[in-house]
Write a protein that binds this DNA or RNA. Structure first.
Length: 402
RNA sequence: GCAGGGUUAGUGAAGUGGUCAAACACGGUUGACUGUAAAUCAACUCUCUCCGAGUUCGUAGGUUCGAAUCCUACACCCUGCA
């Protein structure tokens, strides 16, 4: 069938893997590199889709597991797909539920963080909500405790029902605390076979649902921080008929760029690469420099809801007492709706009063901040000034720590 | 006026002889958050020369080896009866 999906590379950065491009989807184009905000449950928490669109976000990513449990992918399908269901007229992505294999299983809370020195805190049997085998995963619903079996085929059925423009293959996200033997086993016995099964089911559903807008499928690269495993995974996936790739897994901050670089070297140049779950500014620079095209992450929204707001000079905690009578915007020069209209003191007050508007204003600011950063990086690649921008930007952002 | 109940750290509120500087909640301060079980979580929140010490539980005395806890007086608040 005719694929209404296309990735075009425009500009490349000399001496690096960075590139700009356009991802064409049935619901519009995405200029890359791009940051894709996450609306897990078909909404970016605290924002209307229109408010999210106004931040400059070019697409949004939702989650198969969460929407399967509630309201049910059949409901979204009956509504006419994610776009119609949530009144969002730009491209959409859905995650496969692979992240939940980890987050509800071995990796809840501390175990998933990116600091190599984090203390392992194994879950008790009672706390654990997911059990993996090579067939798939059994989940205990975090909503009502019911047991659900999840696998590659079901993930694809859900994602086709949701109707996102870009879907991800069902994978296993390992943690930094799993040893080499487990990483190999996970990659070869689950992530690889699950990728093939996802692709097969995807093809079946694409034919069965002929007439619906084309949905692209990205294979997901795992392999933790092992170079040979990462390259092995890339070569394996590159041979398959995927439309693009998700770069997933547990990373440590120190060598994130290096790991992405291995994948950037192995993966075909003419297919887009999506960084799963990355959005800290330094990480974004490193990933783009090494060939990543798009990013999704909950962090700007979550940290914003918890009072951490981005500025070019680092994050500030707006709940802090020093902002009580600070009547300046979050930072001078920010073009977001929040900074155009409100002060630090007002946002500070909203947080202390536990007003819902605090979440909205903070989220708008943070999403705009990261979207704009990636937009600026895109411009710098075209202009050939990426390295200057990176050096100057990060020096200013982290100046307070030095 | 008589009878009964009450007065605990910023607030509310446990505690009725030692394990009490005193539960818990809120408030406050600081920090964390990277394919969302997150409008969440953690630490601290009497004072100090803070791995130890010093002052607290309406006020003042007293009993006791030891009191926020028992006794006496006083102050204030609440509820009945006058």
């Amino acid at each position: 069938m005719q694929r209404d999906f296309k990735f075009t590379v425009h500009d490349r950065l000399d001496g690096a893997l960075a590139r700009t491009g356009t991802i064409h989807t049935p619901h519009g184009d995405i200029q890359t590199p791009a940051f894709i905000p996450v609306g897990t449950q078909a909404t970016l928490k605290a924002l209307t889709p229109e408010q999210l669109s106004d931040t400059g976000a070019q697409a949004m990513l939702a989650n198969a597991y969460h929407l399967y449990l509630r309201p049910g992918h059949q409901v979204v399908d009956a509504a006419g797909g994610l776009n119609k269901f949530m009144n969002w007229n730009k491209p959409t992505f859905t995650d496969s539920g692979g992240f939940q294999v980890m987050s509800l299983g071995a990796g809840f809370k501390k175990v998933i963080d990116m600091k190599g020195d984090a203390v392992e805190k194994p879950l008790t049997k009672k706390e654990k909500l997911a059990w993996i085998d090579n067939e798939g995963v059994r989940f205990k619903s975090h909503l009502d405790g019911t047991i659900h079996k999840f696998n590659a085929e079901l993930s694809m059925q859900i994602q086709h029902g949701l109707g996102a423009d870009i879907m991800f293959a069902f994978d296993e996200l390992t943690t930094l605390y799993d040893d080499r033997a487990y990483q190999e086993e996970s990659l070869r016995e689950r992530t690889h076979p699950w990728a093939l099964r996802s692709l097969a089911e995807h093809k079946r559903l694409t034919e069965a649902r002929a007439g619906k807008p084309y949905q692209a499928l990205f294979g997901v690269v795992q392999g933790a921080n092992y170079e040979d495993l990462r390259r092995e995974c890339c070569r394996f996936l590159a041979e398959q008929d995927f439309d693009g790739f998700g770069l997933g897994g547990a990373f440590t901050k120190e060598n994130l760029g290096e790991i992405v670089g291995w994948m950037g070297e192995e993966l075909p140049e003419d297919k887009p690469r999506h960084m799963l779950g990355i959005s800290e500014p330094d990480d974004i620079f490193d990933c783009i420099e090494n060939g990543a095209d798009t990013f999704d992450c909950v962090s700007p929204a979550r940290v914003g809801r918890n009072g951490a707001l981005y500025t070019p000079e680092g994050r500030i905690n707006i709940k802090g007492a020093k902002y009580r009578t600070d009547f300046s915007p979050i930072f001078e020069g920010c073009d977001c709706y929040t900074c155009q209209n409100y002060t630090r003191a007002y946002v500070h007050h909203l947080f202390h009063a536990k007003e819902l508007l605090a979440n909205t204003l903070a989220t708008i600011h943070n999403e705009r901040f990261i979207v704009r950063l990636v937009d600026d990086i895109r411009t710098s690649i075209t202009a050939g000034t990426f390295h200057d921008l990176k050096a100057a930007w990060l020096a200013r952002y982290y100046a307070r720590d030095i």
